[in-house]
Design a protein around this nucleic acid. Structure first.
Lengths: 134, 134
DNA sequence: ATGCACCTTGTAGCAACTACAAGGTCAAGC
DNA sequence: GCTTGACCTTGTAGTTGCTACAAGGTGCAT
């Protein structure tokens, strides 16, 4: 299949696929007589894997690692497990930070509500300290 | 104050401050006889504002908007409110996605636990469809 | 006058794409 | 057989928000 078809099948832009090839994430495809890339079902499977892992927040280098790990089956399981665990930790960290952030933002909005009659405090809140800003 | 002092006071690298100046986020400072940047307390307040807003996940262009909004006091409150609301929505979206992601990752780990004796399913799970990957 | 911390500008790098530009290929329609 | 249009090729530059040099200037203490 040609790059456009693969792109459609995986929801990836053709340019991104070429980028993955340049970066060694996706193996290079065969070429047709007219120098078009010609992808196999293995490519399709690999690219799906890559997109899914990226969607789960793995970096491209982690994805590369996952790919090589899944190539040699023995011993790989604990390494893969390790990577997933690390990623899970990272995700939890992000969630916690975002929740703090959400709380701050909604407090800002509430302080705006509260002072409908006067002028809202959002800018002051952002400026944080009670000094007049500008 | 010189750039290093401002940097220390706000927890920003000097290079980042110069970057903000180039990008028009922070107004240019006066210069000393020796061509060093010489910052005022207003700069300090503005930079604190910028860092705080960035820390809350506002993009640099949103920060610029917030800065200009807070410059002309009238009418600004509802616009600021709007920006904060938008940001809050975005943050909630991110949190939801991350929670989905977390669930998937921990399910992966559990399927690994479950099949201690056999080989773990993580790679298969990533590959998603039951086709053999590679 | 010499060392050192600090400053200046300019440029390049990071991640992970995305967006051109300028040109080649291929099938369909007239 | 020739054109049109969709698709493909390579290469390069842009995006966001910094960060990291390199090569040189300033300011102050010893």
């Amino acid at each position: 299949m040609r790059i456009g078809e693969l792109a459609k099948a995986t929801g990836t832009k053709a340019e991104t696929i070429r980028y993955y090839e340049r970066e060694g994430i996706l193996p290079a495809a065969d070429r047709t007589a007219g120098n078009y890339r010609d992808y196999s079902n293995e490519h399709l499977a690999t690219l799906s894997f890559v997109r899914r892992a990226r969607g789960l927040g793995f970096s491209t280098s982690q994805v590369k690692e996952l790919l090589t790990l899944s190539d040699n089956d023995d011993k790989s399981c604990s390494d893969v497990d390790q990577l997933v665990r690390q990623q899970l930790k990272e995700v939890n960290r992000k969630i916690e930070n975002l929740i703090l952030l959400r709380d701050e933002l909604s407090q800002m909005l509430q302080s705006c509500e509260a002072s409908r009659i006067g002028d809202c405090q959002i800018v002051e809140r952002l400026a944080q300290s009670p000094q007049v800003w500008r």
